[in-house]
Structure formats: C-alpha cells, structure tokens
C-alpha cells in the first residue's frame, strides 16, 4: 500500500531540515506513548495476578529467538521514525514540486 500521499509536501520553516527533525521527534513521541501504554498494561496485569516482580524483570535474559524478534521489531521501528526522509525521496522520484501543486490548484479552480 502507498505510504506517502501524492502531492508535494508544504514546508513551514526557512530550513526544511528542521521540519524533518520535528517529524521524527513526533513519531518518536508517539512510539514512546505506545510503549508506555503497553508496559502499563503489563505491569498492572502482572500485579493483579501476582505474576512477577520488578526484580524478575531486571534478571531477565532474552533467548536467541527472542533477540531476533526484537531486532526485527527495531528495524520496523526505525523505518517509522525516519518516514519523512523516505517520503522526500518518493517525492523527488515522482518529480513533485511546489509549482506542480499550485498548478493543480489553478487547474481544478478554473477547469
């Protein structure tokens, strides 16, 4: 499925790089929030069921299979954070510019 909406992305700052850093920061903030929510669920369930303690968490060592799963997850995670960089490339590949967007505004407004 396509991940970038067709149409040149507007820029708001004088330095477009700032825009990307902000997008990354917000994606990261989102993922931290997802994680925090999941951890909260786990800790509450564990506590409610008397399953494990904080010391158990500290003492845990992942198996090779678990380590591999985690690595896969990390790759997806990083791709999500760097989404905006990948999308810029897509835009360049499609030849989208601010002028090409303005041309659409003019076209649909007058034809």
């Amino acid at each position: 499925m396509p991940r970038k909406a067709k149409g040149q992305r507007p820029t708001f700052f004088t330095d477009p790089q700032v825009e990307k850093v902000l997008a990354m920061t917000m994606a990261l903030a989102g993922e931290v929030s997802v994680l925090r929510e999941r951890l909260d669920t786990v800790e509450r369930l564990a506590e409610a069921k008397g399953l494990f303690s904080r010391q158990d968490i500290e003492a845990y060592r992942p198996s090779a299979r678990v380590a591999e799963e985690r690595e896969r997850w990390r790759k997806e995670y990083i791709a999500r954070i760097l989404r905006v960089v990948h999308e810029e490339l897509e835009a360049i590949e499609r030849g989208e510019t601010a002028a090409s967007y303005d041309a659409v505004v003019r076209a649909v407004s007058s034809s």
Binding site: M1, R3, K6, A107
Partner: peptide, 9 residues
C-alpha cells in the same frame, strides 16, 4: 492529481 487530505492512495 493529489491524494485528497493526504490519505496515501
């Protein structure tokens, strides 16, 4: 021409 309100596709 463009993906309306940025829905990809």
């Amino acid at each position: 021409a463009v993906d309306i309100h940025c829905q990809p596709g």
